[in-house]
């Protein structure tokens, strides 16, 4: 299975994602620059955290205008797994691939620490290796992680089981419904503020994030079993 790790200027978690997928999981990955438009060679797309374009205008606002978005939107339409972590999540909302938007953290501060999140929905291509209700310890690192959507959107997210992760031991940033991660209506686009790639090996203090990547691989292997 081949992952694309998108590189926007200013993003900083691209190497961590690459490391998790290749060195830890043993899958293939390639860096894809922001000016590329064709992502047809890849089975899954990863949008890293960091501060693309220095967070100018708004986090993710400039990245959504990059040529590579065309390929990302195409991959999402084709049903390929698209995962955005941190700033990657912000880019996905800016691009309209996920609903809602981000505000500054409730307490105005950039927060970088490990938090507890709970798996609310394990029937997605990103969470099938978890059990429902499982508690995970995964770091967050963001200044604008305060997910916002209007009430109507929130009810729709709940109804469709699109909320995948919630903060389970205090809400660090003030997000609506304690949302830490959510999927698109079709279920193949996941945005999450916690960084699973920073919790993918015991040497990093937690392996709780690794199953996000394992789930993607498992789903892909199952759906491609006949072609293998």
């Amino acid at each position: 299975m081949k992952f694309a790790v998108i590189q926007f200027p200013g993003a900083s978690c691209d190497l961590d994602l690459y490391h998790a997928v290749t060195d830890v999981l043993g899958e293939k990955a390639e860096y894809v620059p922001h000016h590329e438009t064709d992502l047809s060679a890849y089975d899954a797309i990863l949008l890293p955290g960091g501060a693309s374009y220095g967070d100018a205008v708004r986090a993710g606002a400039l990245a959504r205008t990059a040529p590579v978005m065309e390929g990302i939107i195409g991959a999402a339409k084709d049903g390929k797994p698209v995962l955005g972590v941190g700033n990657g999540f912000q880019v996905l909302t800016e691009a309209g691939l996920l609903p809602g938007a981000f505000l500054k953290n409730r307490d105005q501060k950039f927060i970088c620490r490990t938090v507890k999140i709970q798996v609310v929905n394990n029937r997605t291509m990103f969470t099938n290796e978890y059990t429902e209700g499982e508690d995970l310890e995964i770091p967050i690192a963001h200044g604008e992680g305060n997910f916002y959507c209007d009430e109507e959107t929130y009810s729709r997210l709940k109804e469709n089981n699109q909320i995948v992760f919630v903060y389970s031991d205090g809400n660090p940033n003030g997000s609506v419904g304690d949302i830490a991660g959510l999927v698109s209506e079709k279920g193949n686009v996941l945005g999450m503020m916690p960084h699973p790639e920073r919790a993918a090996e015991s040497i990093l203090g937690s392996e709780d994030g690794l199953n996000v990547f394992k789930s993607i691989v498992k789903e892909w292997r199952e759906s491609h079993a006949n072609q293998a």
Partner: peptide, 9 residues
């Protein structure tokens, strides 16, 4: 609407 403003918020 394409750049400076996120009309969601």
């Amino acid at each position: 609407e394409k750049l400076f403003v996120n009309t969601n918020v």
